[in-house]
Amino acid sequence: MMQDNGFRDVYNLSGGIKAWNGETAVGPAEQGLSLFEGRMSPEESLLVAFSLEQGLRDFYLLMLPKVTSDDVADIFQRLANIEIKHQDRIFKEYVNVIGRAISRQDFEQRTMKGVIEGGMTTEDYLAMFNPHLNSPGDVISLAMSIEAQALDLYQRAAGTADIARTKSLLMDIAGEERGHLNQLAELMDRIS
């Protein structure tokens, strides 16, 4: 996010404030990472957006049985449900952009092709951050990092979209992701 706004030298403090206070570092903190480079066509942007929404939903559902706080479980369930609505909107817009009918199944197969190559699994991602799953604060902090990445993605995609309605849709989704981030921040405030 910062690099996208002109900051040339940005360094994450691995392990954050806990490490600074002398506790064991838990691996690189990913907050503030830029999103992938390169200009995307509107179609590609929507395919990536759909894939990311699926990843976010998978993450929230994965967290559900692992958290002990009812508050956290409730907000994760609601966030997971919201991602389904985002995916529906993205699919509808994709059909509009390509200008012809396509089945949801065929569409989702395209999204899978785009995200399979050489990445990390959600479990790998969790292992890298190593959140304490009995600590709602750790889990929420991780979720905020991922939501921030999603927000960045949609802002970047909107900035490069050539079609006005695609730009508008992506900006709308970015606004919703900001709402998710605020929800998580409020939850963090409540439990801190």
Binding site: A19, V48, G118, T121
Partner: peptide, 21 residues
């Protein structure tokens, strides 16, 4: 979900590096 393609790695400091910097 494969995440890596969504993220561009940036530099990281451990605590010792940050203190020195």
């Amino acid at each position: 979900m494969r995440w890596r393609q969504f993220f561009t790695p940036i530099k990281a400091f451990n605590v010792g590096e940050a203190r020195e910097y």
